[in-house]
Computed example of a mutant assay.
Amino acid sequence: MELRELLLGAALSFTLSMSGAQAAKELKLATSAPLGTPWVNHVEAIAHKISLNSNGAISAKLFHAGQLGTEPVMVQKTIRGRIDILGSSMTAFSTVVPEMALMGVPFLWDSYAQIDCAMDKHLTPVFEPLFEKKGFKFLQWNELGWIHTFGKKPFLAPGDVKGVKVRAAPAKYSVNFWQGMGANGVVLPLAETPSALQTGMVEGGTLPAMTYVAMGMGKLAPHLTLSAHLHQSGALVMSMRTWKKLSKNEQDSITNALVPVQGLREEVRSMAKDMLAGFQENGGQVHKLTSEQREEWKTAVLPLREQLVSSIGGQAQEVWPKILEAKKACML
């Protein structure tokens, strides 16, 4: 009797250990975007497909709205494998993949169609090895849209910002833009920008239109100028530490779950357009540059382009001509 119970116990222990070994692998998927936004909807769709493709062997738990830290912090956690999948901005990734800053060179891009063509048809294989070298498996591009300028007064010409203290994003292309415009760029994290506007530390800055509206910046700096002087992309990546632990079938379950990024782009751009229209309907002051004004901005900023490219480091000097070639190939 004791032998029978011993054998049954051993069999039960073996069964439990086998079921534990076959339990679903749970991946941490992080983003700074809040629920209900196109970015969260996009990664949730990917997470659902990962589960389906792997027959439930892999699941992805979403951490939204920066629950796992600021974007730069999450980038570092992904390198270390503490976050498995991350969707983040060009600004954040450029802190470790400096060549990403080249995508934000002021007045580089002419249209969304040109940007999409360049990234999808030409630049993905250029950036994939750069990300891998820093500990990321590049999955696909992300999208934030055009970056515009805002201020407590209208910014319509370089003379309007000459000597004015303005918030610069923690990225070389943002500092370079304000330097060309003659402004006094003060590098600040996004979270510190509202208080800096309130105290008068800065008089304006640059942001995507939807971020400007969503954060209520219009109450602090009511003039938004649609400068579209640079484009803010981003990427969806996976920690190489996590990626290398997966089997080939598991890796395929993830790459085959990637939802086409064009849908995300269209949602983000449509959302920005709608939010901008709502801002104007509620009395927001939006300014459009004339072609002459835009040329004046470009004339002020373009002489510093070579300096910017040289300052970025990494393989920027080799990557920059490839970006220009991609732009030329995608001129529509």
Rank of each mutant, 00 (worst) to 15 (best):
F107N: 04
S111K: 06
P260G: 12
K25P: 01
K165L: 04
K288S: 15
E26N: 06
D120S: 01
Q140T: 14
K49E: 06
Q232L: 11
I323S: 01
A228M: 08
L230F: 03
Q140S: 09
K133G: 11
L207W: 11
A300M: 10
F279H: 15
Q22Y: 00
K25T: 14
L224P: 10
K134I: 05
M201R: 13
M331C: 05
T211C: 01
K288V: 11
L27H: 06
D120E: 06
F150A: 08
L27W: 07
V237K: 05
R305G: 01
M240I: 11
S195F: 05
A92P: 09
F131W: 07
G180F: 07
A272F: 08
F127R: 12
L6G: 01
P125M: 10
L246A: 12
D252K: 13
M331I: 13
W178M: 10
N184E: 13
M18S: 13
L230K: 02
G69E: 03
L102V: 07
T37W: 01
K298H: 07
L258S: 00
G313L: 05
S13N: 03
G56Q: 00
L16Q: 08
D120L: 02
R269W: 03
K121F: 00
L308G: 10
P34A: 14
E26K: 11
W39R: 06
A257K: 00
V43M: 11
D252Q: 12
S17W: 01
W297V: 06
T95G: 05
K328W: 12
L6E: 13
M331L: 15
T91V: 12
M215L: 15
A33K: 04
L3W: 00
A228P: 04
H229M: 08
F150S: 08
L62A: 15
F150M: 09
A183S: 13
K322W: 02
P129D: 13
I312L: 12
L144V: 01
F93E: 09
S247Q: 08
G284R: 00
T95S: 14
C330N: 02
G313R: 15
S19A: 14
F279E: 13
V73D: 05
F14W: 14
W39A: 11
R241E: 14
W297I: 07
E325M: 08
L6T: 06
I50P: 03
A33I: 09
R241H: 14
V75A: 09
Q285L: 13
L226R: 15
G263I: 02
F155I: 15
G163T: 10
L68Q: 14
L16C: 05
A60T: 11
G263V: 02
G283H: 11
L16I: 14
S32N: 14
A45C: 04
L190W: 06
Q67D: 15
E250C: 04
Q22L: 15
K133R: 11
T206E: 09
A60Y: 08
L324D: 01
